[in-house]
Computed example of a mutant assay.
Amino acid sequence: MKYVAGMDGGGTKTAVTVADETGRLVRSFASGAINYNGQDEASIRHSLQEMMAQIADACGGLEHCAHLCIGAAGVSHPAVDSWLTAEVRACGYEGGLTVTGDHETALYGALDSPCGIVLIAGTGSICFGRNEAGKTHRTGGGGHLVDDEGSGYSIGRELIAAVLKASDGRIPETAITDMVHKRLQAESVQQIIGFVYDKSTNKKDIAALAPILSEACALEDRAALAIASASARALFELAVPVITELGLQDGSLALAGGVLLNNAYVRTALLEMLLQSYPGLRIVLAPKDASIGAVRMALQRWKDGDGKRQNGECDQPFP
């Protein structure tokens, strides 16, 4: 019996799924993040070693794993593909290997066919699509320093900014202030600023504040509702070029990532904008575990000879 494995490496954790050659799922688990742009090499190496050990256990040895697909945030970094490949090989894995963006695996996992669009708003944000002719288009995904509007990181940053603005009178008092202070166990604005600029604080720490937005919106807090509206608008702006460039105005679009799956205020505002502009668009919520998409890609790449296709056409729908 041969097996395949898929990793979905988001900004805060990595979901892993192992399946046998028939597509039957045999194990799912989670480990640390493997985002090269947000984690140090030592922590990524440790997480990969842990995951490869569990994959070996599920398959009865790494030699029985025919193909591994790693979908990871941050693979646009020119060094990531070769570095991840070297680290996986160092774990003793010799089978087929695909390293791609988590937007690719999310699309595979979200729709019955890998043709369509996926809009992801997790720790970061990105939109990716593929039409029936095999043409692809991507927007966003540039990372938290220059991009990622509408993401968990962006929302976390805007929540902190709202606290600062309310403290000095630039905006009215907001319920966000007490919520952020409580979450960070901070007694002053200065402590919050210290948290932001502390060298040990990373983007997932900022993104971890994002759930506060739902709580504040439920109180009809003006600042929170403004953040939710701006986030939805930013995500809509990510989707528009992909829809139009690929001619998928009547296609399928999957919403993925913690912000869109868990924040009803952002999701509802985004849906209104999308359906008003594209009434023929079919919109679905993606499964929370995008590693299923990585497994589907691994299984297909293995059956197709490790993905060496002779044309650019879209894959056939999944069974």
Rank of each mutant, 00 (worst) to 15 (best):
L225K: 08
A15C: 00
D112Y: 14
A42K: 15
E245R: 15
R222M: 08
A42N: 11
H103K: 02
L145I: 14
T105W: 05
E215W: 00
R24Y: 01
G129D: 04
Q49A: 01
G258Y: 07
K204S: 14
I155T: 01
G71W: 03
K13Q: 07
G293Y: 10
A218W: 10
T100S: 03
T174L: 07
T174M: 07
L246H: 14
D148G: 07
V284H: 02
L84P: 09
L270N: 10
G124T: 04
G122I: 01
R309I: 03
K199M: 13
G71M: 08
Y3E: 09
A256C: 12
Q54A: 06
D57V: 07
G60L: 06
D306C: 02
G141I: 09
Q54D: 14
A210M: 04
R222F: 08
Q185M: 04
L270D: 11
Q300L: 14
L219N: 00
T100V: 12
S31C: 11
F29I: 00
R309D: 09
L68Y: 07
A15Q: 04
G194F: 10
I160V: 04
G32F: 03
I292V: 13
P78Y: 02
A290W: 03
A264W: 12
E21A: 15
C65F: 08
P287A: 13
P114N: 02
D102A: 01
A294K: 01
V4Q: 03
L119C: 14
M7K: 08
R130Q: 06
Q190A: 14
I176E: 08
A53D: 12
A72D: 00
